[in-house]
Structure formats: C-alpha cells, structure tokens
Simulated scan of single mutants.
Amino acid sequence: MSKILIVAEHLGGQLNSSTARCVSCAAAIGGEIHVVVLSDAPDAVAAEAAKIAGVAKVITVANAANANPIAQVLAPQVAKLAAGYSHVLGASTTFGKDLMPCVAALLGVAQVSDIMAVESSHVFKRPIYAGNAIITVQAPSSMAVVGTVRTASWPAAANGGSAAVEAASVDAALPTHTRFVSLQQGKSDRPDLQSAGKVVSGGRALGSADAFKIIYSLADKLGAGVGASRAAVDAGYVPNELQVGQTGKIIAPELYVAIGISGAIQHLTGIKDAGTIVAINKDAEAPIFEIADFGLVGDLFQIVPELEKSL
C-alpha cells in the first residue's frame, strides 16, 4: 500500500489551497496520506491541513530556519522525512517547482512533473509541448516517486477531516550559502488569481495600462481575480504576476472571461481546464473562439462598459 507525503504550501500563516488539490491527487494514487508543515510556527497551518478530508496525519517541523520558504533549506528536511514514504508530492506552483526538484535530487530520483491524471500508483499522465500533447510516464516502482501536481487538473479536497497532528524533529544539515533577504509580492484586495472562482483577463488589444482599468472595474463587479496575456504583460500594461498561460499561471476557475486576447497556444494551455470560457474580441477569426463556450465579436471598449452596466 502506498504511503504519501505532501509538502504543505503556506504563506503568512495561511495554508494555500494547492495543498488540498495535492490531496485529491494523492487520493487517486491511493494509500495513507500525510501532510508535512515546515515553518517557524506551524501550528495554525497544521490545524488547517488537519481539516482536509482524506489526510490521516499532519507532521509539523518547527524550526526558525523555516520562517521563509527557501527550497535549499526545506529540501534536506523533506528528504529526511521521506524515508518510508512511497510518494512525496508538492504543488506545481512557484513554491513546488522550486522545492521538489531539490528533494528529488537529494533522493537520487527523477521527478515526475505536472501530474494531471493517475493511471496507477506509478503511472501518470502529464502535459508536454506547452500542453499540445499528453504523455504517459511510468516511475520505477523500486524508488520513491517525487512529483509535482498540476493543481488546475485537480479539485480541492473538501474539509471535514480530523487528522492527528504530530511534531517531528528532523536532523538535517541545512545550507548556509542560501539565505532569505526579502519578499516582494503584489498586493491586491481582489481574489488570488490561482484560487479565484472567477477571473477576468485582458490582452494587448487594451492598448495601454490606463485602458486596463476597465478590466479591473469589470472584475470588481464580478468579484473576480484579474489576469492578463503575456503580450499585455510584455507591453507593460500590468505586472507579471498577473500573467496567465504556459509561462505564467495555469488556472482553472469556474468562469474565465478573456477580453482582447487572441488566444495564443501558450495562453490557451493556461486556461483549458476552466469551467466556462467567455471571449470578447473584434477579430472573429481569433483562436480564442475555438475553445470559448461563449464568444462576442465586437469592440471591447463598447462591449465591456455595456456588460458592466447590465451587471
């Protein structure tokens, strides 16, 4: 029977919803699911993780060195904890993509990236070629599987669990060559882009950072997160943390509204798991209309204000 360890992602004392999505993936693999919380003060995050249905145990590692999520510091501890586990999973987020390859290297195994479906305990499906193809990969059954979970492909496991919380002491040599300096992050009162149920995105057709205000206004009316195409980010209309797509954030909201976005394959890869896709574009031949559930051809500067007024 599999025994699975999930590395919890958290920031500011709050558990990221990506952890619950990893639990759904682990449930598909089958086996006993444990979650490890590495922090300087892990109790609050551990309490949240313990409520996720399907989690049998939450392990806490309290260490002042874990105050900030530095992969080179966390990886040796995770590698030590991995003894006895058949699988070690993390989210395919900025955090997980930084941490899990380090864990895999320390354990001497190849990482399975972006797990989007589980065929069996050691056989998985993952996207390649910017999502244009899906490949089936098989990990050696004689070694631990270290993998990242494509969170857009998995629903978040529900609450309702009551897992035991257990403190652990890890004897691992931590590096001194890597240290935390500062954290710079965008601040917004809007829903987080990767966990928002509704997202409104703008593209290069907006023409300027000032014109992007109509995207923010519509998003606020809908209670939605705000995203953007790579072209809009490269043009300087919005900061890069709003970029949606293969080289940005891969998201799966219930509603995705693409405004002035033509639909390059890299962008479509980032939204293909969305529930309902709405596209507004003046070009009737734009690729975005090929995958949109609802499409409206016209001038966005006329349509969006009318839409907001109707709302």
Rank of each mutant, 00 (worst) to 15 (best):
G31W: 00
D40L: 00
G13P: 10
L15A: 12
A163D: 14
I215C: 07
S229V: 10
F95G: 02
C25D: 07
A168V: 06
V88M: 00
V304C: 07
V118R: 00
A219M: 06
T19Q: 09
F301R: 13
S18A: 15
V58W: 06
L255T: 08
Q184P: 02
A8M: 04
A139C: 01
A130M: 10
I52D: 07
A157D: 12
V145P: 02
D189A: 12
P287C: 10
I29R: 01
A279G: 10
E306D: 15
Q266N: 12
A56Y: 01
I52V: 01
G207Y: 02
H34E: 12
G207N: 06
E290W: 03
P101E: 14
M143K: 14
A158M: 10
L107N: 07
I265H: 11
N132E: 13
L268W: 03
A232F: 09
A41Y: 08
P191N: 09
P175D: 13
P175C: 13
G223V: 02
S195G: 03
A83N: 14
D114G: 05
S229E: 15
G298D: 12
P127T: 01
I6E: 04
L99Y: 00
R179A: 14
N63M: 02
A139H: 08
A71D: 08
A292M: 08
R204Q: 15
I265F: 09
G186D: 06
R190S: 03
V181P: 03
S18I: 06
D98E: 14
A50Q: 04
R230P: 10
I135Q: 15
L38Q: 10
A50W: 08
D192Y: 04
Q243M: 15
V7E: 09
A258G: 03
K3V: 01
G270P: 05
R21G: 02
G275N: 12
K97E: 12
Q14I: 11
A83G: 08
L38S: 05
A139M: 00
A168T: 08
V226T: 11
V233N: 11
L242Y: 14
L193K: 12
A79P: 03
G131F: 04
A144R: 09
T60W: 00
G108K: 01
E166V: 05
K249A: 12
K187P: 00
E9L: 01
R230G: 12
V238G: 07
A196V: 01
A156M: 06
A144M: 03
K198C: 13
N68T: 11
L268G: 08
A252E: 02
A163V: 05
G161C: 05
E166P: 09
D98H: 11
